[in-house]
């Protein structure tokens, strides 16, 4: 046996590691197979790339319907039909947890004290599915800290302006508009917008523009030092961003479905 192989077999064959994996959450208010399928399809059509083979967590925090109407196996099949993979649920009700275990799905801790931005399409049984969430069983508590409330709808696009630094662990989302940040965005922070993102300061965290599939969205920053930049699901991580534009004023946008960086 070669020496290297002998060394390999001398060490344990597995080890546990804690890690943060971004997961998209599907918030279910009630379950109706036909509506579910239809709404899911509509949502996916807005950003097919973002959703392809996406692992999903079903959140039952706001499930208000009778538990007997909830068929997790059927939900999993309906998701699979749209090339989405349901990997687990978030729930607290014992009946829901039991149903998940019977269906062979993982049970994750529910989000605590999370404020959802008001949605326009409140008729739909699926709340917005496109906001990436960080699933981390250990510190889910402060995964999302809204710095300011979103401005009320006033007919104009719901842009959001923030003047204070966005710190590690904070998440700020501008639903339905642009996000303008006049301060640094720290490493470990996450900023999201349905429209463009402007950062008048260094961008060191994660920036996701056009999260609901707007391919025209752009990211502007005074100094590009980001951990991740994504536009309508196309993303680059910091390793890909290192280069001529690193720490320089930059513009990121989609050209022919590819994320490109331009000098500002």
């Amino acid at each position: 046996m070669p020496q290297a192989t002998a060394d390999l077999f001398a060490s344990p064959c597995l080890q546990f590691k804690g890690s943060m994996v971004p997961l998209t959450t599907l918030e279910l208010l009630y379950f109706d197979p036909e509506k579910f399928s239809q709404t899911l399809q509509e949502k996916i059509q807005q950003a097919p790339n973002l959703f392809k083979n996406l692992p999903l967590v079903l959140s039952l925090d706001k499930f208000a319907d009778d538990i007997n109407n909830l068929n997790l196996l059927q939900i999993r099949e309906l998701c699979a039909a749209q090339e989405l993979q349901l990997v687990g649920i978030r729930a607290t009700e014992p009946a829901q947890i039991a149903a998940a275990q019977a269906a062979g799905l993982a049970v994750l801790q529910p989000s605590r004290g999370r404020q959802e931005a008001p949605e326009d399409d409140s008729q739909s049984s699926l709340q917005k599915a496109s906001e990436p969430q960080t699933a981390n069983p250990q510190s889910g508590a402060e995964a999302t800290e809204e710095v300011e409330d979103p401005p009320p709808g006033n007919g104009v696009a719901a842009n959001r302006v923030i003047r204070t630094p966005i710190r590690s662990g904070q998440q700020v989302y501008a639903p339905g508009g642009d996000l303008i940040i006049m301060a640094p965005v720290s490493a470990g922070a996450e900023i999201l917008a349905d429209g463009n993102i402007h950062v008048y300061g260094p961008l060191r965290g994660r920036a996701l523009a056009g999260v609901r599939g707007n391919t025209e969205a752009m990211v502007f920053c005074q100094s590009l030092e980001a951990e991740l930049v994504s536009i309508a699901g196309q993303y680059k991580i910091s390793e890909d961003l290192l280069g001529n534009h690193w720490k320089k004023p930059s513009l990121l946008k989609l050209e022919d479905d590819r994320l490109v960086i331009r000098e500002l």
Binding site: E145, V147, R167, S168, G169, Q170, S186, G188
Partner: peptide, 12 residues
């Protein structure tokens, strides 16, 4: 990084 985090909590 931890201080950055606590500053965020301080302001929220």
């Amino acid at each position: 990084r931890d201080s950055d985090r606590i500053l965020g909590i301080l302001q929220s």
